[in-house]
């Protein structure tokens, strides 16, 4: 069926029918309204199965980040519920890293382990291992402010992955980086996935290309209050390197498809005078 469609895209509507396993995370008709009356999310349902990397894109202010924060337990739902498989460990990579400035790179990386009661030796070993993997060997005892933005975000990624999470949440992690560093970070993330790290992932971004490159599945949200308007799985996804994906015609087709949707959303919003 996938070959019958233009753009080689499979639009998946009924995930539960397709997937045999119960999902790792299920958002069930959730809505979030902030205390100040702003409705961030309206009726969002989304299943994230094990070992799937899901990107969420949408116009700015559409509640993508809110969805992530709900899952991380930093935001309460006003309606609906979030079901997470028992014993699921979460880890999060924040915008601009959000490293603790008072901790060295090593202490930042092993923070999650330390909180869970790992010994100082275990923490140090993990920090060293992750510094090696991320090319940060020379910076292990440096403070975050002495690192470039890209290096800081690598530490942020290492801090999250060092806890060996079942699902990795990323909140526009590369948004503050310059264009080249961004590309490098996207490749790093694909490499890590290829190594079988961060298998299940929820990746929030405003960049369509990034969403397509990093994830297996892309969820497009409407403008505020956010709803899911498209949920697609490009068939080039999975296992291929970021720089290869970028050259595929299917990549550009998917990109245009998503961009048209977002553009429609944004122009509708403009007509309503929201923007």
């Amino acid at each position: 069926m996938s070959h019958a469609l233009p753009f080689c895209i499979v639009i998946v509507e009924e995930w539960l029918n397709v997937m045999q396993q119960p999902p790792l995370v299920r958002f069930e008709q959730i809505a979030v309204t902030y205390p100040n009356g702003v409705q961030a999310l309206a009726d969002v349902s989304l299943d994230i199965p094990q070992h799937q990397a899901v990107s969420i894109v949408g116009p700015s202010g559409c509640g993508k980040t809110t969805l992530l924060r709900v899952l991380a337990g930093l935001e309460h739902v006003s309606r609906g519920r979030v079901i997470v498989a028992p014993e699921t460990r979460l880890a999060m990579v924040f915008q601009q890293g959000l490293l603790f400035p008072w901790m060295s790179v090593a202490d930042n990386i092993s923070y999650g382990l330390m909180v869970r009661g790992a010994s100082p030796q275990q923490c140090r070993t993990a920090a060293r291992e992750w510094c090696d993997r991320m090319g940060l060997q020379r910076f292990i005892d440096v403070y975050p402010h002495q690192l470039s933005g890209g290096m800081q975000q690598r530490v942020g990624l290492a801090r999250a992955l060092a806890t060996n999470p079942d699902i990795l949440l990323l909140d526009e992690p590369f948004a503050a980086l310059d264009a080249q560093t961004r590309l490098l970070m996207q490749e790093l993330l694909s490499d890590l996935r290829a190594q079988g790290l961060c298998g299940t992932m929820l990746f929030v971004t405003h960049a369509i290309d990034e969403a397509l490159i990093v994830a297996d599945r892309v969820v497009v949200m409407s403008s505020r209050p956010g709803r899911i308007i498209t949920d697609l799985t490009p068939d080039f996804a999975g296992g291929r390197r970021a720089d290869q994906v970028r050259t595929l015609p299917a990549f550009h087709a998917a990109f245009d498809h998503i961009w048209q949707q977002i553009k429609t959303e944004v122009s509708a919003q403009m007509h309503e005078g929201v923007l």
């Binding site: 991380a72 337990g73 930093l74 999060m92 959000l98 909180v115």
Partner: peptide, 15 residues
């Protein structure tokens, strides 16, 4: 946000 980051990693009140 530093508190949030720490909470996501499972820090309790004392930590």
């Amino acid at each position: 946000r530093y508190f949030e980051a720490a909470r996501v990693f499972g820090a309790n009140q004392r930590t």
